[in-house]
Each structure stands twice: as structure tokens, then as C-alpha cells.
């Protein structure tokens, strides 16, 4: 019954291939990622330190820190930064509170209702462009649904996304609609993984539901809350599609985010050097923030 495998110890290619498999399997992905991240990073640093002439035949001139110094005095940049921060704080904050609240309320009722859960998850998977036009339709001042509701309630009609005071609010509402499900889903997953025993022990010890929430649920959920916040904040810091369609950054730059501003600088003002400088600023703040956040929340594992 002996069955041989052919050549006694295999050929040398096979041995070489097996020996280097750990490198060979990693190589394609590493090459792609290295090319597509290292090259752009170097380019950005070089571009940010030069003055690129719109005329491609003229050589680049070294500009030192000029492009970065412009950040200090550029009011449009400050507006973009401010808008991005306001958007991040209010959008992520609302999504978190709503998502956590809904998860706490629905945890025990929705666990087995996978179908319902999937429907509730839908918004975050839809194309942002489709979401943006949907909300544009809802916000439409003349025939939009929102003003119809205001009218029925006897409230003054608004221009919503077109109103200087309400534009940011409108963008935030649309984002909250799309991304609360994300928080909800992660919180639900966190709640589902909670152990039962500590709650039973706490109940025997006479802890109220409110105490149990503060002393047990929140500490247990902390890692997943931190991850959820981090992922969302990194997304909101780069917000583009929604404002691009919904408001175009207006009115009066009230919803102009940093991403939108970089896009304008690079393509409308044709100033890639300055765009590179702003991009690097965004990159460094994102990296600095996430590193700080990861350390602070002890998420390294």
C-alpha cells in the first residue's frame, strides 16, 4: 500500500519557493502599498516646500516654510478648519449619543431580528452621493418635504442647506442620518459581548440599573466606544462628498471643510504647493490625534 510522492525530496525551485513563501506572499501587497503611499508622501513634502509655477516648463523654486506660514494668515483655511471641527464635534457627538442610546434601548429586542438590524444599517452603506442628493431633495426650500412638515406644524419655512445659519446644521443632520447606524451597530455588538455574571453579582449587591450602567456597562464598552469614535472622527475630518453635493461649501463658506478647501486650492486655484502644505497639515493632525487617542485609550492591542 506504499504510495510514493515522486521525486525524492522535490526540486530546488519548490524548495526555494516554500522557503521564501512568507516574503513572496507579502510582496505584492507591500509593493502596491509602498508605491502608492511612499511616492505620494515624498511628493507632498517636496511640493509643499516649493513654489510650483503654473507653467510646467519653469523649474520649481524652493520656498522653504512659506507655504506653511501662509496657513497662519489664510482666513479661508481658518474657516475650513473651524467648519471641520464644528462638524466633527457635533456630528460624531450626536451619532454617538443616539447610537448608544438606541443600542441600550433595543439591545434585548433586536438581537434576533437580523432582518430589521440590516435595514437599520442600510444608510451607512449607501453611496454618499445618493445620500447627498436625497437630502438635497428633502431640504429643497420650495417643494422639499422638510418645509412641508414645518408648514403643517405652523413653523416658519427655512432655506435649510441654503441658509447661512442652518447650512452646517443641515449637513450634520444628513451625516447623522447616514452614520448613526455605524455607532448603533458597534454599540450593539459591544453590548452583545457583555458577560452576564458581573450584572448578576451587581444586582445581588443591590446596584441600581443606573449604577450598573456607569460601573459596568460603560467600562466594558470603553474599548469599542473608543474604536468607534476614532473611526468616525477620522472620517469626519476628511468630509468631502456630502458637502460637495449638498452645499458646495456654501453659503458664504459656512460648510466649507478642509478637504473641500484643499480641492479648491489644488484644482480651482491651481496651486498644488499650497494644497500640499494644507494636506500635510491635515495628515499630521490626523496622525497626531489618532496616536494620542490610541495611547490615551490604551488601544494599542
Amino acid at each position: 500500500m506504499t504510495v510514493s510522492i515522486g521525486a525524492k525530496f522535490g526540486n530546488s525551485f519548490e524548495r526555494w519557493f516554500e522557503r521564501h513563501l512568507r516574503v513572496l506572499m507579502l510582496a505584492p501587497a507591500m509593493l502596491v502599498l509602498l508605491t502608492l503611499t511612499i511616492f505620494p508622501s515624498i511628493y507632498m513634502i517636496v511640493a509643499a516646500a516649493t513654489r510650483i509655477s503654473p507653467n510646467p516648463d519653469l523649474p520649481w523654486q524652493f520656498a522653504g516654510a512659506d507655504n506653511f506660514l501662509r496657513l497662519l494668515t489664510d482666513e479661508q483655511f481658518h474657516v475650513g478648519l473651524w467648519n471641520t471641527l464644528v462638524f466633527t464635534v457635533f456630528a460624531v457627538g450626536t451619532e454617538f449619543l443616539l447610537g448608544l442610546g438606541l443600542a441600550l434601548l433595543l439591545d434585548r429586542y433586536i438581537r434576533r431580528l437580523n432582518f430589521l438590524k440590516t435595514i437599520l444599517m442600510l444608510p451607512m452603506m449607501l453611496p454618499p452621493v445618493a445620500v447627498a442628493i436625497t437630502w438635497k431633495l428633502i431640504y429643497e426650500p420650495q417643494f422639499g418635504v422638510l418645509n412641508e412638515i414645518m408648514f403643517r406644524l405652523g413653523l416658519p419655512l427655512q432655506a435649510w442647506a441654503g441658509d447661512v445659519r442652518l447650512a452646517m446644521f443641515s449637513v450634520i443632520v444628513a451625516d447623522v442620518w447616514q452614520w448613526t447606524p455605524f455607532m448603533f451597530l458597534l454599540m450593539l455588538a459591544g453590548l452583545a459581548s457583555l458577560p452576564d455574571e458581573p450584572y448578576e453579582a451587581a444586582a445581588i449587591d443591590g446596584a441600581s440599573a443606573w449604577r450598573q450602567f456607569w460601573d459596568l456597562t460603560l467600562p466594558f464598552l470603553k474599548p469599542i466606544i473608543a474604536i468607534a469614535l476614532l473611526l468616525r472622527i477620522m472620517d469626519t475630518l476628511r468630509l468631502f462628498d456630502l458637502v460637495f453635493i449638498l452645499t458646495g461649501g456654501g453659503p458664504a463658506d459656512r460648510t466649507k471643510t478642509l478637504s473641500l478647501y484643499i480641492y479648491q486650492v489644488a484644482y480651482r486655484f491651481a496651486d498644488p504647493s499650497y494644497a500640499a502644505a494644507i494636506s500635510l497639515f491635515v495628515l499630521f493632525t490626523t496622525v497626531a490625534f489618532s496616536t494620542w487617542f490610541i495611547k490615551r485609550m490604551r488601544l494599542a492591542d
Binding site: L36, T37, M44, R238, S279, L283, T286
Partner: peptide
């Protein structure tokens, strides 16, 4: 290190890499 580096490339805002890619 490699795992973490691969994950971190994911965190780069697209607007940062898009200009060099456009030029390339």
C-alpha cells in the same frame, strides 16, 4: 510593524494622496 503599517496607510485621508496620484 508590517501589520500596523498596512493599517495606517488606510488612515491617510484620500485628499492627501490624490494630488501626487493625479500628477503621476
Amino acid at each position: 510593524q508590517i501589520s500596523f503599517w498596512i493599517l495606517s496607510t488606510r488612515m491617510m485621508p484620500p485628499i492627501v494622496t490624490i494630488i501626487p496620484l493625479y500628477i503621476a
